[in-house]
Design a protein around this nucleic acid. Structure first.
Lengths: 124, 124
DNA sequence: GGCGGTTATATCCCAGCGTATATAACGAGG
DNA sequence: CCTCGTTATATACGCTGGGATATAACCGCC
């Protein structure tokens, strides 16, 4: 039977995070991309926030940071209207999601391929 | 001349972080690996902490977390002695550093290669 | 014109993380 | 045997991030 240690090392799971920095603040990261997708699906910042289980305040701040970092909106919001208002993800925002996801997928593939080797090296 | 936006997007910098999870806590991450290297160089936890500009308490907690997560020490410390004591990075610790760095380098290469394409897609 | 749901913003508060500080035990070497 | 620098641990404090809450403005629709 394998030792306790070996079992622990087998259970190691890896995760990878990509962050796009624009000067001081983070233009794009895992949370912001998830939020963009949630906003696109919900049609509003508040709806996206609810989906993500975060406060509206936080969601709004994240959006504000993204828009400022890129110099143009990834999310465009409007008040009033039949549904009270809403927000749409711009083409730039949709492009950012796609580009981020592709890069993430590529990097994760490399890491996942290297993980077994890493575990082996830590087991012996 | 390029627009303000285009210039902003050109300045986007990407960074990547790998984390090894073992159940609840993080067995290995960027900070812990840096710390391992600092401890190896300094020959003590406190010396490594000084190098990293962090408190001894924090460094000690990180070491404790690593050792617990792996089920065996990556750092072995002893009190007393001619230099007051000290700490050494075990073979497992050294292996962990090397394996982590290699995986990180491979993932970063992929990401850096994909970055220009991402910028282009966000510029137009 | 009031209703409803959203945006935008301010204020308050709490939890968690990290630093700073203090203290005891340790042990080789002068 | 005493000093010195380190390990190991506890306590107290400050900062920051984020949630909760409140409020005003907005505007299509009934």
């Amino acid at each position: 039977m394998a030792s306790k240690t070996a079992r622990k090392i087998q259970k190691l799971e890896i995760d990878l995070r990509l962050r796009l920095h624009a000067g001081e603040d983070i233009a794009l990261g895992p949370g912001k991309v998830d939020l963009l997708e949630a906003i696109a699906a919900a049609g509003s910042i508040s709806g996206g926030a609810r989906q993500m289980g975060m406060s509206y305040r936080r969601a709004w701040l994240l959006v504000e940071t993204m828009n400022r970092a890129f110099g143009q909106p990834l999310v465009r919001a409007q008040t009033g209207g039949n549904s009270g208002g809403g927000a749409a993800v711009t083409k730039l925002g949709l492009d950012a999601i796609k580009a981020y996801r592709e890069l993430q997928r590529a990097a994760e593939q490399v890491v996942q391929r290297g993980l077994p080797k890493l575990k082996r090296r830590l087991s012996k």
